[in-house]
Amino acid sequence: MLGAVTIVFVVMRFAGGDPTYAILGDHATPEVHEALRETLGLDRPIYQQYFEYITKLFTFNFGDSLVKKVPIGSLISHHIRFTIELAIAGFMIAVLIGIPLGIIAAYKRNTKVDHFIRVVSLIFPSMPPFYVGIVFILLFTLIFPIFPSSGGGNLNDFADRMFRLILPSLSLGLFLSGTLVRITRASMLDTINKDYVTVARSKGLGQIRTILKHVFRNALIPIVTTAGMLLAAVLAGTVMTEMVFGRPGLGKLLVISVNSRDYPVIETILAIYALIIALSNLLVDIIYAYLDPRIRYE
């Protein structure tokens, strides 16, 4: 975590640009810019700014946005809900589409069904979510006006929020599902010829039960590993998806903040992303132990 936030801090400070241009625009004189830089503490040595940043981060006192002038805590707490909703929905769609299709492809291996699923699983990952998003917008808001083109919906209106989640989560989920299809199929095929599967079949166990209970369960470790890694991809995907669909999530906030060099906001969001990825890796490790009792952590 400390490494990640330090890298973010250093990269942002050396990325060039100056937040005072976002705050003052193109009208202010150089002296006014300099005065504001001083007020914001941007004229101080980098190490001093770094220690202040780390102290604030670890005491959960994120301070105020330089540009928007609102507490970063409240900014994040508003935006993070839309990102969490999108990430969960996108991830669920990827899992609900990817794993069953992978199982079917393995079960029907080398048939037309398998070929079809494998081709489809290559199409969506080949198109980034923002592209699929734009196609969806043109298709479902202009040609067939069923869905709204953008926005996250009213926080007090659950139905509205879920309705506005459909297109973004589909474009994100479809992009990620292909990877899960292929890894599930490969892992299933790897397990399907194991001795214990043959034993299960010879005991007269039905095909579906054999596939789900004996093959799928034992094929889960690589699938869970991939799904865990996909969480990082989900977070990355939310940035562009939120931009395309105008969802007021952390991703959109991050892009706006990078454009205006709103350092504290950028650094806080990226620290949150780093924390989420670290926690998801931890979760994957815990699930390993549950799925395979031979794996134990001392």
């Binding site: 917008i137 043109l138 202009l142 953008s150």
Partner: peptide
């Protein structure tokens, strides 16, 4: 409303 993408902004208006 601030739109992050030109296509969705246009779609919102045309739609």
């Amino acid at each position: 409303v601030l739109y992050g993408d030109a296509t969705s902004r246009d779609a919102a208006v045309w739609g």
